[in-house]
Design a protein around this nucleic acid. Structure first.
Lengths: 114, 114
DNA sequence: TTATTATATAAGCAATTAATTATATCCGAA
DNA sequence: TTCGGATATAATTAATTGCTTATATAATAA
């Protein structure tokens, strides 16, 4: 058993959040780089409100934190979360997603948020 | 990174399966004891078809295997699954569920499947 | 064979989800 | 101040989900 056991019911709700391709990719990306909404919008083939709504779920669950920087809001993984150890263990099984941000940079699309 | 990385999209679908209280509990129970449908039915406050449908999803994903023993079908975790390491890492964060089978035994309800 | 028990499958339905479009808010720049 | 860009929220809708009841299948027992 892990040193940090969480309630089964709350674990299920966290896993449900991770059980979505878009959210899981976002969380995996945030594991190595903070990011703003505009970057996610550029990466995923979906609308800005769709991204915002995914982020809200992650934020409501305490998995991500936000920091406003000017007109941008930078999202990061909340390492203080009770579920951070669980999330980390899940992420370890996933392929790195850095290529997505790299592609953005090559297209010059990442400059906007800096 | 884990020694066994899986595709992000398939990981998301596995996590979605685990992101249900009933299925997550069943998987956690199966981690320590094989079980038949009738035990799950006795444990969860839901119908037999509901349990069968949960099990089918787990079976379709290759997470559990079935062995027929007389009129009973015994389910067990499929340790050969590509996702077994991921599932194990998740289960390590969950509290043991043995008490559920213990309660059944005390009520004499577990004898039926033996 | 027939009856009984365990399980699976099918059909229908209510709740939830994830998207869309439209609009609101918040901030920095002119 | 007003404008434009970044983000959030609201309302709507289509798709998915998880349950229910009813029925089918499979194995054992009488």
């Amino acid at each position: 058993m892990s040193e940090s056991t969480v309630e089964l019911e709350s674990a299920a709700s966290i896993l449900k959040l991770l059980g979505d391709k878009t959210r899981l990719t976002m969380i995996k990306m945030l594991d190595t780089h903070d990011a703003c909404v505009c970057e996610f919008v550029a990466i995923f083939k979906t609308s800005q409100p769709a991204i915002s709504q995914h982020i809200r779920k992650l934020k409501d669950a305490g998995l991500v934190r936000e920091t406003r920087r000017g007109q941008w809001i930078i999202y990061s993984l909340n390492k203080e979360s009770l579920f951070y150890p669980l999330v980390q263990d899940v992420l370890h099984h996933l392929p790195n997603q850095d290529f997505r941000l790299k592609e953005l940079e090559e297209q010059g699309l990442r400059i906007s948020c800096e």
